[in-house]
């Protein structure tokens, strides 16, 4: 989907800046604190996270308890006993959205984290080692890069069959090459900086150089890039569920809820649209936070 962000030079992490000191991070925080959009979006995300983590304690109802008598009831049904109404099987929408958020967030974030670990490691190794190691890693990456991300995700899920673990596997495989590319580019740039060259020349161990000079400069940009992938991952994951390739009933997940509530769009349009709104809100907040982080960390701005 919007993974083309990866190929967009202006959206990419900045070229390696000089080694970042405490002063730099203070500057980043200062710039962030002056960015109301990022702060608001960050706050919304934190609130959402808290709500879904606390779902078992704050959700008003059982997420699986069906009732045919109170199916598809409007918002504020029974004077707020069902604040967001009920779904097609009479389950409380607020509860389902809270529990659904857990799975949607999990499906959105886990592949990015795993890809961040694996892709970051491989990219740094490729960038730092250069030579045939770089060649091997980067050419393999190119192959997976040759698949549009939705297609790759659908292909893998389609062949393996539906299910949460298969969906996560396919999403992770989609993101790894993207993160490898970003981290390799950044690492290569850092490696070629004069002072890093001289540190290597002066006989410092490779690990030391990586730890002292490379990681601090590289992790930031990769991290920022990874945050921009979360929104992509969430939309992709919900899309897979919507197609019937992700989560399976009765699990609550926003994409799947959107799918099962489709036919209610004629009788309870608002209810049918709620899961979509949740996906949209989360996704746009992650995007804006990622934008804010990037411009705060970009010394040129």
């Amino acid at each position: 989907m919007n993974s083309a962000v990866a190929n967009n030079p202006t959206l990419l992490a900045t070229p390696a800046a000089p080694a970042r000191s405490k002063g730099y991070w203070a500057g980043v925080m200062k710039r962030l604190s002056r960015d109301p959009v990022t702060l608001v979006c960050g706050a919304i995300l934190l609130l959402m996270l808290a709500a879904i983590l606390l779902a078992p304690w704050i959700a008003p109802h059982d997420p699986y308890q069906t009732s045919m008598i109170r199916r598809l009831k409007p918002v504020w049904f029974q004077d707020g006993r069902y604040p967001l109404g009920t779904d097609e099987l009479g389950r409380d929408m607020l509860t389902r959205l809270l529990y659904g958020g857990r799975l949607s967030w999990f499906l959105g974030i886990t592949p990015v984290i795993i890809a961040f670990g694996i892709g970051g490691l491989l990219g740094i190794v490729a960038g730092f080692a250069g030579g045939w190691v770089n060649m091997l890693i980067m050419r393999t990456t190119d192959v997976f890069y040759a698949f549009p991300s939705v297609l790759l995700a659908v292909a893998i899920s389609g062949a393996l069959g539906p299910g949460i673990s298969n969906a996560m596997l396919s999403l992770t495989l989609v993101f790894i090459p993207q993160i490898i590319r970003v981290s390799e580019t950044t690492t290569t740039a850092v490696r070629n900086l004069d002072y890093v060259e001289s540190a290597r020349a002066s006989g410092a161990g490779a690990l030391t150089v990586v730890r002292v000079h490379v990681l601090p400069n590289v992790l930031g940009p990769i991290f920022v890039y990874a945050t921009s992938l979360i929104s992509v991952s969430m939309i992709l994951a919900s899309g897979l569920s919507f197609l019937g390739l992700g989560t399976r009933p009765p699990e609550a997940e926003w994409g799947l809820m959107l799918n099962t509530l489709r036919t209610a769009i004629y009788s309870q349009p608002l209810i049918a649209m709620l899961p979509g709104l949740c996906i949209f809100a989360t996704s746009i907040c992650f995007n804006l936070v990622s934008d804010g982080l990037r411009s705060a960390m970009d010394v040129r701005s």
Binding site: N2, V5, S231, I235, S238, G239, F242, G255, L258, R262, I265, Y266, P269, M273, G276, I279, F280, S283, I284, F286, N287, L288, D291
Partner: peptide, 18 residues
């Protein structure tokens, strides 16, 4: 632009059909 890249477009499609 941010809305464009953040909206689940299949959902947008359903709404547009309605």
């Amino acid at each position: 632009a941010s809305a464009g890249v953040s909206v689940p477009h299949y959902w947008l499609g359903m709404v547009m059909v309605v």
